[in-house]
Amino acid sequence: MTKRVAIIASNGGLETAYKVLNIATAAAATDAEVAIFFTFDALSIIHKDAANLLTMGAGKEHYVEGFKKANVPSISELLDIAKESGVKLIACQMTMDVVGLTKEHFIDGIEVGGAATFLDFAYDADVTVTF
């Protein structure tokens, strides 16, 4: 029986991006169906300019060096893996309207939807995680 994992990402920052994408790609590798709903600040994770938008919060700079030392993949690498393994990336339409972003601002392969689009997937989820 295929497991289904529904993830809500609502925070920005490099740290959140890693939390979200690590869980998502690991779940997909374990044959789960995965969808991530990106809302509010988390939209920066799938923004074309994510490399500049995603930063470490003040006082957490030590992570950056640690990431390099541990040979952690880049966010764009993880996004590619996620897409390749069938993870659904859903951008929140409402947030986009509020901050004036359109689908063109985001990387290829994402979907745009509202809360109902995500809930439609999440209602049958076995695991729900919020970041």
């Binding site: 690590n22 790609t25 690991a26 997909a28 590798a29 374990t30 044959d31 541990a70 040979n71 952690v72 993949p73 893996i81 393994s85």
Partner: peptide, 13 residues
Amino acid sequence: KGLSCPMPIVRTK
């Protein structure tokens, strides 16, 4: 070798 989580699992799959 040298890869960190979740890459070993992703590659294994």
